[in-house]
Amino acid sequence: MSKVMLHPETWVDRYSDYLYNYTIVRVNDHEVAQDIISDTFLAGLKSKDNFKGEATERTWLISILKRKIIDHYRKINSNKGKAEVRINYNDTDNEGDWLEEQVEDFSEMNAQESMENEELGLAILGCLESINEKQAEIFKLKTIDGVDTETICNEYNITPSNLWVIIHRARKALADCLESNWFK
């Protein structure tokens, strides 16, 4: 079996969205997530000689990313006291009610659902890796970022017909990939 090789020059285009979605649900802050991701890539570059070629590039990067996320929480927790959870009763009338029970729950989703959705998102991005990079980029712009046809056509110097052909192929490939990896 041929071993997987690392191509650091393609990492950002290929994996940054995947890593970002993995990170953002865990740290909940755009700037922090971005820092963690660039740290991950740099760490990957530094230890690329340790890569044995047994896992895929993405799996290997995710394993580094996981450690970076843990490091992040260690760092903010070492500022002692800040991470402490205080439980107070706000007044005597409500004595016996936990503070957290009085907070309105804004999220309509329960934990199970949001976890499934996160996994679904990662499955979709994983499937996108199997199609041509440029086409995946165009598909993401149109479908996820909602950029209009004209803007994309101008940016990539293609006609609307070209765009729709790309979209059609991408949708077909994605639907097939999800069918065999997710909905089964």
Partner: peptide, 29 residues
Amino acid sequence: LTKSIKDSKIKTLCNEDKGAIKEKLYQEM
């Protein structure tokens, strides 16, 4: 597929953010 993408709430990094990360990585390379 449309419903899945909507439900998954995928986010993408914008080109500037990607560019910044690329810059750091390329410099290190």
